[in-house]
């Protein structure tokens, strides 16, 4: 069919590269729609929404924003349950932290392939660039994603296509290979130049990666959760709570999640039906959740730590309200722990 308009589904992360990849194809008359996967670990909104100090800042979902700039539809797919298989047992292991980037990419491209088939689209597009990322975007790993996702030669990377074997969209003339690019390596200069060419002035610059799993401190807290529970699993609430508050583990049996400000305290209070929670009875201060099994002695320690993060931390005694889920609140009078009495190693 000479005049058929081909349709591509593009993985939209919210960063510049996928934005450029879509523009390149739009330039060639391809109809593009975006797809974005929500694993629960994505760096979008949550922490901003929770922390009061961030609530007045301009909050936006970068993937939605990018789609709007590009004038394309965006389909957001929730993959929280399925993603557990990717994160808990990645065939290709982890990157520098608990980020299973290579398996993750194959999984997402595979999901995009299913979506493409169900919606009558012709091929898949990503903003990947050879050598851009140490794990998932190397010359030897790009073919792994194409193969393991099942997308094979229906996966087009417009920003580095000229350095890769021609894909079906190129071979069949759905797109013009000559007008694709040969970006390579960690330099961002070619992307900047192309952004300028397309008059794209504003874009998000995700540091390190598109999800919390590339974050050292987040990964450390997740590893701690698995170790404490003695099995590797999680629910959405677990991974949300890892993004909130200070996490203090005084013993292998329990940890405390301490709200850092009002927004986090409110958020943690939403979990009072699942966890024992502590609050100073007569002054402002942190809401503290207890995650794990505690003895009476542990609770007394939790109360002293709660007192340490209350406004009355300099007083000799502070009254703390302790409420186990579904039980009446009781009060305990304790001496606040001195900052030096909380060993650095307790902070996750």
């Amino acid at each position: 069919m000479a005049n058929k308009q081909y349709k591509a589904v593009a993985l939209i992360s919210g960063g510049l590269d996928s934005m450029l990849a879509v523009r390149v194809l739009q330039d060639q008359g391809v109809h593009v729609e975006g797809i974005n996967f929500y694993t629960g670990f994505c760096v979008e909104g949550h922490t901003h929404a929770i922390r009061r100090q961030d609530q007045n800042k301009h909050k936006r979902n970068n993937a939605l924003w990018v789609a709007e700039q590009l004038g394309i539809k965006l389909h957001i797919i929730e993959v929280i349950e399925e993603y557990k298989n990717v994160l808990l047992a990645p065939k290709h292991g982890y990157g520098s932290h608990l980020n299973p980037c290579l398996d993750c990419k194959s999984f997402m491209v595979g999901k995009a392939l299913t979506w493409m088939q169900e919606h009558g689209f012709d091929f898949i597009v990503t903003g990947e660039v050879i050598g851009q990322r140490p794990m998932s975007q190397r010359r030897d790993t790009l073919p792994v994603v194409a193969r393991e996702s099942g997308a094979q030669d229906l996966l087009l990377r417009p920003l580095c296509a000229k350095l890769l074997p021609p894909t079906r969209p190129e071979k069949e003339g759905w797109v013009d290979r000559e007008r694709l690019h040969n970006f390579n390596g960690r330099s961002r200069k070619p992307q900047m130049a192309l952004a300028q060419h397309y008059n794209i002035k504003e874009y998000a610059q995700p540091a390190g990666g598109c999800c919390f799993l590339t974050d050292a401190s987040y990964s450390h807290k997740l590893a701690d959760l698995w170790q404490a529970r003695q099995h590797r699993d999680y629910e959405l609430d677990d991974i949300m709570l890892l993004k909130v508050g200070r996490h203090i583990r005084p013993s292998p049996d329990f940890k405390l999640i301490v709200g850092r400000e009002e927004g986090e305290n409110n958020y943690l209070e939403g979990y009072r039906h699942c966890f024992t929670h502590l609050r100073p009875a007569a002054c402002p201060g942190a809401t503290v959740l207890v995650d794990g099994n505690v003895t009476e002695q542990d609770l007394a320690l939790a109360a002293r730590i709660t007192a340490r993060f209350s406004q009355h931390r300099d007083r000799p005694q502070v009254t703390i309200s302790i409420t186990p889920p579904g039980t009446a609140t009781r009060q305990l009078e304790v001496a606040p722990l001195a900052p030096d009495d909380i060993p650095g190693a307790w902070y996750l």
């Binding site: 929500y38 979902n61 939605l64 389909h75």
Partner: peptide, 10 residues
């Protein structure tokens, strides 16, 4: 938390 409300609405 976002983006879940959007996903549910979608």
């Amino acid at each position: 938390l976002c983006p879940m409300p959007v996903i549910k609405a979608q």
